[in-house]
């Protein structure tokens, strides 16, 4: 071990071992895919991340992971690192529609196929495959079901919609889906409150409290994401509006995403319906799209996750496809 007495040699050995340990010099012939998520700050993104990793492991594909913590510059650097490490493909959740374009361009210039998972970017001189739920159609189908339930009560309802971030394509799709479902049903639904939440629990809670202050007789509420339900329920309880389906004073509730809270509320008989994004479909489609592109096959620019509406009548039959129910059961 005398060579270790030479500090320079020892440092070189240490760095070589470190780099080797990191897999930088691996001679592994397997396909490598870089997975870059903007954030892991909601259960949905965690479920998506886990689903992609499971899909890659199932196909014996090597994975490089990166989380940008909502920073588009950091995401750009992460994508450039993927390019430097010569990955075979990239699956990315962009920060938003605009700021992610340089990152996509970096992958395009290196000739690396890139798939955007669940959230797509503007196609301004860049090429990618998008895998995304049809937010508009799914929100509309969910609210259609809620309207049907409202009509069954035989009375007119005042409605509130809790909106997401107004700069998020997904949030806008859900908002438009909500209003499309209401359109033509004004005889029984009057929208009296539009609460912007910016995907923030505190803002959602305060907004719902304030909306009930202005309109105490609201009896129809749709939220653009299930993850806001704890705050909404807290506000409903404070206004004595949280009652089970069929009980006097029940507010018809609907959501979007299909998370564990929504599943619990559905089981407990409070939630009428929620639009479920099929995270497992999206993960499989993303990985398959990269493999198809590597093989030179034709892949559509946008792969739609049809999703589905889970409601009180079909919940037992559909629960195995609802990611929130799967998480709840610990599978």
């Amino acid at each position: 071990m005398t060579f270790l007495r030479n500090p320079l040699l020892a440092l070189t050995c240490f760095l070589s071992l470190l780099l080797g340990g990191c897999g930088g010099g691996s001679s592994d012939d397997r396909i490598t895919i870089g997975v870059a998520f903007e954030t892991l700050q909601t259960e949905y993104w965690v479920a998506g991340f886990d689903a992609i990793k499971a899909e890659l492991e199932k196909r014996d594909i090597r994975i490089l992971e990166a989380i940008a913590d909502s920073d588009s510059n950091r995401q750009l650097q992460q994508i450039k690192t993927f390019v430097t490490r010569r990955v075979d493909g990239i699956i990315m959740v962009p920060k938003d529609a605009k700021t992610s374009i340089p990152a996509i361009k970096a992958a395009n210039e290196a000739g690396i196929p890139i798939v955007l998972f669940n959230r797509i970017a503007d196609r301004e001189g860049v090429e990618f495959v998008g895998v995304q739920a049809d937010n508009f159609a799914l929100a509309k189908a969910t609210v259609d079901y809620m309207v049907e339930k409202a009509r069954e009560t035989g009375r007119k309802h005042k409605a509130m919609v809790v909106l997401g971030d107004m700069g998020d394509h997904n949030a806008i799709g859900r908002r438009d889906g909500f209003f499309a479902a209401i359109d033509g049903n004004e005889d029984i639904i009057e929208v009296v409150a539009r609460v912007p939440s910016e995907w923030n629990q505190e803002k959602a809670q305060a907004g719902v409290v304030n909306a009930f202050q202005a309109n105490p007789d609201i009896s129809f509420l749709f939220t653009s994401s299930d993850f806001l339900f704890p705050s909404i329920v807290s506000a409903l309880k404070a206004a004595d509006k949280y009652h089970k389906i069929g009980e006097p004073g029940h507010v018809i509730l609907g959501g979007f995403d299909g998370d564990a809270t929504a599943w619990q509320m559905m089981q407990d008989g409070y939630l009428s319906a929620t639009g479920v994004q099929d995270v497992y479909f999206e993960a499989e489609a993303s990985v398959q799209a990269i493999l198809d592109l590597l093989e030179g096959k034709e892949v559509p620019e946008l792969i739609r996750d049809p999703g589905f509406v889970i409601h009180q009548s079909n919940m037992e039959a559909m629960k195995d496809r609802m990611w929130g129910a799967v998480i709840s059961s610990g599978n």
Partner: peptide, 13 residues
Amino acid sequence: TQTGAVSPSFGEN
């Protein structure tokens, strides 16, 4: 005590 949930975006901004 108002929102009733600890979410990953708690306290953001």
